[in-house]
């Protein structure tokens, strides 16, 4: 029994951490319409920076500054934010697909650098030996995991409340206005580029926070944790939940993470031994099919945002007429 509970704690912790990342992506895609093809870069920046700042000094690599945990985690978020700011600053004023390509490129380059810059990141070995916060008090066992889960859930609720407040704030309304009609928003004197940059960076900071928690939970991060598949998984979570809908995004995180873990378990248990090698491929195809299938048959997600068509009729015609190119 304790085994099941302990597994559930473990599962919920990871799903909740990914849920935080999905909420960050939702701010970018669902609320602002920005395609982030490199979610894993923000996530990884958060994880790596947190462990490097908070970890103990180690022989052979730079880093290990032994900062107190909250500072280390904040550093992880900052790192994710800076990375996003650079990419956003360069691409957000251009055609929309530049952002998609550049973010995708960041993720490729990030993984590549983490793998090769051994003196800073530990290379393929990753960063080990991180002392988890409060470990001295709680030990390494079940109690620790429960307390950690509570911490993650509290963070998740805080992020949720923050984002819900944000969407109803004037800033949130501006995001919506830009997403629906950029030309009109611009003519009202809004600066869409700046607002989108703020939203993009904020979303990435939240994803970085998730990455920081993830690294903390495992007390370890390596290039294996920042592979492109994570980006796809987080996207699948968002599209299943329904872009623009924070609660849906969270539900999506649990559904997809559940399906992922279950399919991995089922394949390793029931698939013939010679097929075991292909477990990853099968799971990847499934994730891809979820993304494409949702787009084709249920683009609003399983839990769609209640759409309010703000200005029907004549205004539509106007914008369409201008867009005749």
């Amino acid at each position: 029994m304790i085994g099941v509970v302990s597994y559930l704690v473990f599962f919920t912790t990871v799903a909740a951490i990914l849920g935080i990342a999905v909420m960050g992506l939702n701010l970018q895609w669902g609320n602002t319409g920005l395609f982030n093809g490199g979610v894993v870069a923000s996530f990884g920046a958060g994880a790596y920076a947190t462990l490097m700042l908070g970890g103990p000094p180690q022989d052979g690599h730079v880093g290990g500054f032994g900062l107190v945990y909250p500072l280390a985690l904040a550093g992880g978020m900052l790192a994710a934010g800076i990375l996003a700011w650079i990419v956003g600053k360069l691409t957000l004023r251009l055609r929309h697909d530049y952002l998609a390509i550049a973010t995708f490129g960041v993720a490729v380059a990030f993984e590549n650098v983490m793998r090769n810059a051994t003196t800073i990141t530990g290379g393929a070995q990753g960063i080990r030996g991180f002392e988890r916060p409060l470990r001295a008090m709680l030990g390494d066992g079940f109690t620790y995991n429960v307390v950690f889960l509570v911490g993650v859930l509290v963070t998740l609720v805080l992020v949720y409340v923050f984002l819900e407040r944000l969407t109803v704030s004037p800033f949130g309304r501006m995001l919506r206005a830009i997403r629906e009609d950029e030309t009109a928003a611009r003519s009202l004197g809004k600066a869409p580029d700046r607002i989108r940059l703020i939203s993009f960076v904020t979303g990435s900071v939240i994803i970085g926070l998730a990455g920081g928690l993830y690294g903390t939970f495992y007390a370890f991060v390596s290039p294996q944790d920042v592979l492109p598949i994570l980006t796809f998984q987080i996207w699948a979570m968002l599209i299943v939940g329904g872009a623009g809908n924070t609660k849906g995004a969270l539900a999506g995180a649990f559904i997809i993470w559940g399906a992922w873990t279950f399919s991995g378990w089922a394949l390793s248990r029931f698939a013939p031994i010679e097929a075991q090698l292909y477990t990853g491929s099968i799971q990847f195809v499934l994730i891809g099919l979820v993304i494409v299938g949702m787009l084709l048959w249920r683009p609003q997600g399983l839990f769609p945002e209640r759409l309010v068509v703000s200005q029907p009729g004549q205004n539509r015609e106007k914008t369409q007429a201008e867009g005749f190119t």
């Binding site: 068509v309 029907p312 009729g313 004549q314 539509r316 015609e317 369409q320």
Partner: peptide, 8 residues
């Protein structure tokens, strides 16, 4: 119209 259910 340009979008379904929203005739101009």
């Amino acid at each position: 119209g340009y979008v379904p259910d929203l005739p101009i």
